[in-house]
Write a protein that binds this DNA or RNA. Structure first.
Lengths: 259, 259
DNA sequence: ACCTGAACACCGTTCAAGT
DNA sequence: ACCTGAACACCGTTCAAGT
């Protein structure tokens, strides 16, 4: 509004890492990771592609940043819920986030160099199991089982050639008709008597499998708890061992991963 | 051996789709999907990159062919085993195959256009559940839950920045030391008191989660089976419904996907 | 400190030409 | 029927140069 004499130059908002990552997510959401090129990203940001390198080290760094941003969207397990409903809610949220950002199912490279949102999320999930009475070992089992299921489900859902129930029915009918006659009888039966049934929607399978895993974890928690250590629901599990805190010390500079 | 007069020209074995796919798998196994370029593949086959297009339509077709070849490596569920041990064995085999070909965890595009090995494998898995007494609907639940878990686990395993127990310990120690002091106490505890424990190996988690899912499916099979249809272990489940076979008819040429 | 333009070494894929 | 060489329209990334 002030100084209307000269037109403002094109890049009105200063570029920064956050804006770069946000714009990249928009592109990847719409067209997948293959649509995300530095030149296209530069276009969307009203900048030359090469300027982006002032804010991210390279494309890998960009994608890692995107993955960490996605983790920030996942609802953290609530402290006031019991472990099962807390994990259930965050798992549903996790799946929704992965459905919103399908490219994120294949990234997962944050394993090498997890960002702060990823670390925070994982810490809270682990803490939820520990406070729910899980031993450290059982927490590892639970964490692995639940997240493997969620990732795998999101990947299968993403790779389906249909999304709406209408598309599903149309696509399934074509695929069924294309199947060599009688060669895959069980696949044909499942398609005809289940997938082509009105109201079928693959996404509905998510909760079935999730509850299967959660019920299994509940059984695991209740059994074999006798030998030593804390009983379930003991407050002793609330605080991590001092051992861990001691080990968590500074690192010499040259030990740093990826400088 | 005959006619030793002139040296044989370079491409001694005739190129075909099978050889192209096999060579591509070798490259992807070693360097991931990003190492697989048409020019590199041509080099390995003693041929110019452009010759490959005589045997595959394009790179997507090539990768689909690779994915189907991988499915052919998975042990089919045995007809003589009960459903649980048959599925357990094939799941273990599935995971081994995905560990051998880590790039395959992210492909899964065969969903659009599955090859014969994929179809055969899926048909046998579905048939195993049906013959084990699962209703069509419960078969869908079981199939989704088990395969989601396997895919997700393979993906997590692949993305870990270590493979051997020694690497694991070394990497975990570095990551633990890099963690901001006290900010992620539960993550630190899990790393210090579990991951850094001698003999820890993430791969061992696979069977824990798999048996969790399989036990859950067994419970699901046993409950709520009263209302109508076939009892568990009934031979009636062995044969797919006639309805399915009827629906499995020819398709008009222009309905074909990907011509 | 941030942005730009030109350039480098790659990609997948086409097309006309060879045998 | 299969293979080749040149070419096209892209990539990620570098580097010196601008402001």
């Amino acid at each position: 509004m002030a100084s209307p004499r000269r037109a403002a130059p094109v890049p009105r908002v200063r570029l920064n890492r956050e804006r770069v990552i946000a714009a990249a997510i928009v592109i990847a959401d719409a067209g997948g990771l293959e649509a995300l090129t530095m030149r296209r990203l530069g276009d969307d940001l009203n900048v030359e592609a090469m300027s982006i390198y002032n804010h991210v080290a390279n494309k890998d760094d960009l994608i890692n940043g995107m993955a960490d941003a996605i983790f920030g969207e996942i609802e953290l397990p609530s402290h006031s819920d019991d472990w099962k409903s807390a994990i259930r809610k965050r798992s549903i949220s996790f799946r929704e986030v992965l459905a919103r950002h399908p490219w994120a199912t294949t990234v997962r490279d944050s394993g090498t160099n997890p960002g702060p949102a990823t670390l925070r999320h994982h810490d809270r999930v682990i803490g939820t199991f520990r406070n729910g009475g899980f031993s450290v070992e059982k927490t590892a089992h639970a964490f692995s089982a639940v997240d493997s299921y969620i990732y795998g489900f999101a990947m299968q859902e993403k790779s389906l050639p249909f999304t709406t129930p209408e598309e599903t029915a149309a696509m399934a009918a074509i695929m069924l008709a294309q199947l060599p006659r009688g060669e895959y009888p069980y696949l044909a039966e499942l398609t005809a008597d289940h997938v082509l049934t009105p109201g079928y929607f693959y996404g509905d399978e998510f909760l079935v499998g999730l509850d299967l895993v959660l019920d299994g974890l509940e059984t695991m928690l209740e059994t074999d708890q006798r030998r030593g250590s804390q009983p379930p629901h003991s407050r002793a599990a609330t605080r991590p061992s001092a051992h861990a805190v001691t080990l968590n010390r500074r690192v010499s500079p040259d030990e740093t991963v990826h400088s």
